[in-house]
Simulated assay, not measured.
Amino acid sequence: MKGRKYLLYDVFTQDPLTGNPLAIVLEAEGLDAAAMQRIAREFNLSETAFVDAPADPKHKARVRIFTPDYEMPFAGHPTVGTAIALSELAGGEDADEIFVLEENIGLVRCAISRNASGPFAEFDLVELPRQLKLTVEPEVVGAVLGLDADEIGFENHRVGLWSAGVPYLTVPVANLGVAARARLDSAAWQEFAPTGTGGSAANVYVYTRDTHDRDNAFHARMFVAGNPSYEDPATGSAAAAFSGAIMHFDQLPEGPTRLWIEQGMEMGRPSRIRLEIDVKGGRMISARIGGHAVKVGEGQLFA
């Protein structure tokens, strides 16, 4: 039986067995959505990317992204990891390049650069972040995270609901100690949560300006509201949504702002996500998510 080649990458990291693991099925032709869903459930990672020929030959590939439970319009670590994998497969180990991936959200422009730290990929946000209506009180948010109401918020940052294609509840907390104690009571959250991707409750993105590494601007954790709930070690789509909160609360200066977000420390899978925001006339006009990725395995899928 002929197999389909797949790759395993760790994304938003330069070190194997850290960051966010990703499965990439390279030969997805002939697979329908139901088959992709079953394969994603077999890998049982936060996301699996499926690569097929693009609709437009000028583009690099068509990429569909599945969690074990539903398909995503786009996601950060599958985009970064797949972009780097496709560049490496094409023999681009020494050259910088720019190409387009076709994802459900639209055409995603990716740029690959290389230096002594290894390959780095960044992609432009197809949708800029927008603030969504939120009716949940901060006290409720604190309670479902096991935190006191006075531990929610810092400076002028307040709880919000933001989306750049995937919605996230953004929850500022006082410091690293508070972030470390956060635990999502998923059953309780289901009662109050706005709707997220796939019809499930919106996922929760906890952040603080207090960081482990002084070179990073924010420390973050992301909890998936499922049964059971689980934590994600590096979440590019959440960072994309979070860029809206940063712009809203921090009033960024004109021109480009580059900052790093650390995530995954509490899980033993440290990661770093680069976020770039361009401001003109007092508003965000574009933004990019970037990170490293490293190959950790490959094989054949007989399905």
Rank of each mutant, 00 (worst) to 15 (best):
F120S: 01
M284W: 08
V126L: 03
R272N: 13
R158W: 09
P16I: 14
W189Q: 11
V108G: 02
V206S: 08
L161P: 03
R214C: 07
A53M: 14
S229L: 08
V126T: 10
V108A: 00
L252F: 13
R209M: 09
K133L: 13
L101F: 08
R64C: 02
E42Y: 12
S87G: 04
D94I: 02
S113T: 14
T195F: 15
M36F: 00
L145G: 05
G91E: 00
A241H: 08
V25F: 02
V141L: 04
A217Y: 15
D150P: 01
I84Y: 00
G91W: 00
D10P: 03
I246A: 14
L147R: 06
V25H: 07
N104M: 15
E122R: 12
G153P: 06
A220E: 11
A174W: 00
I261R: 08
Y168M: 09
V126Y: 04
T82M: 00
T79C: 00
M1W: 10
F66E: 01
T208G: 04
N20C: 08
L184R: 09
A201S: 15
L101E: 11
G30C: 10
I65A: 00
I289P: 05
P21L: 03
F99T: 05
G299P: 07
E93Q: 01
T197S: 15
G198R: 03
L259R: 14
K280D: 10
P119K: 06
T82W: 01
R4C: 13
A202M: 15
E27C: 12
H77F: 05
L45H: 09
K5T: 11
I105K: 06
L31I: 08
A188C: 12
V11H: 03
K295S: 14
M36L: 00
V144C: 00
A111L: 04
L128S: 12
T197K: 12
N115Q: 04
E102K: 06
Y70D: 11
I273R: 00
P78K: 04
Y9T: 03
S200F: 15
H248L: 13
P167I: 10
G297N: 07
D148H: 12
G291D: 01
